[in-house]
């Protein structure tokens, strides 16, 4: 048993011969917001995707809410209901309306009634500021609106943990703020979050902990203040000076 929402011990992942995650030890407490930073190719997205089993680890242990998950034995569909994910490219369902996107999984997986799923879906759309877009198709939305719908869609399954994989990287600069604001609200409500991002402002302001990854390893982990103002490792210093 562990008290963590997420606990990874000695996590390893290979893509063919490429060793992308090397003996990762990583924990997330309840209501904690952890931001993963690092250069592209450092393994942050892969690690995030291992946490909801979109990528399968090749070695190590992974605990979700205290229970070790064995991909061969455990029902991953059930685990994924508790671990929501938001993608860089939104991945909204283009053949469904905004509300249809949000209702889909509650209807089909949780077997909610149409009335209840619709009611909850509309509330979530209100929450992300898109109550008036319920009947619109995703192709009519801006990038920022799409990503907020994607957040509402993930929240509709009432997850305990939310994973964000570069949620603002595909957005025009002027649309980044609205998505970060939505995420900030979520963090303030006590959602447990793991966020891969290049938005250092968000990391500074919202993160409880910042984790710097390089070459498939966690180099350094600490409060935003520790990482941004007093990085101990040379690699971290080099990375931060290259982007700030």
């Amino acid at each position: 048993m562990s008290d963590y929402m997420i606990e990874a011990n000695q996590l390893n992942k290979y893509f063919g011969d490429l060793h992308v995650l090397k003996d990762i030890d990583f924990q997330v407490k309840e209501s904690e917001v952890v931001v993963l930073i690092g250069a592209s190719g450092s393994g942050k997205s892969t690690m995030l995707r291992c946490l909801n089993f979109l990528e399968m680890k090749n070695g190590g242990e992974l605990y979700i809410q205290g229970k070790e998950i064995n991909p061969k034995k455990d029902n991953l569909n059930e685990v994924r209901q508790r671990v929501g994910m938001v993608f860089q490219h939104f991945n909204l369902f283009p053949h469904k309306t905004v509300l249809g996107n949000v209702m889909e999984a509650p209807l089909q997986v949780k077997k909610l009634s149409k009335a209840q799923a619709g009611e909850e879906g509309k509330q979530l759309l209100e929450k992300v500021g898109l109550g008036d877009k319920a009947d619109v198709f995703p192709s009519r939305l801006s990038g920022g609106q799409k990503q907020r719908v994607a957040i509402a869609r993930a929240l509709a399954m009432k997850p305990e943990i939310m994973l964000f994989d570069e949620p603002t990287s595909a957005l025009d600069p002027e649309l980044v703020g609205e998505v970060l604001q939505t995420m900030k609200t979520l963090a303030q409500e006590g959602m447990t979050m793991v966020v891969v991002t290049h938005e250092m402002g968000f990391a500074r302001e919202v993160a409880d902990r910042v984790v710097y990854m390089h070459d498939g390893k966690i180099v350094e982990s600490g409060t935003p203040q520790e990482i941004f103002e007093n990085p101990k490792e040379e690699r971290t210093q080099a990375f931060l000076s290259s982007i700030l």
Binding site: L54, N77, E78, V83, M85, L92, V109
Partner: peptide
């Protein structure tokens, strides 16, 4: 991936 991440089989 979006479908699977929502717990759909």
């Amino acid at each position: 991936e979006a479908g699977r991440s929502l717990g759909m089989s």
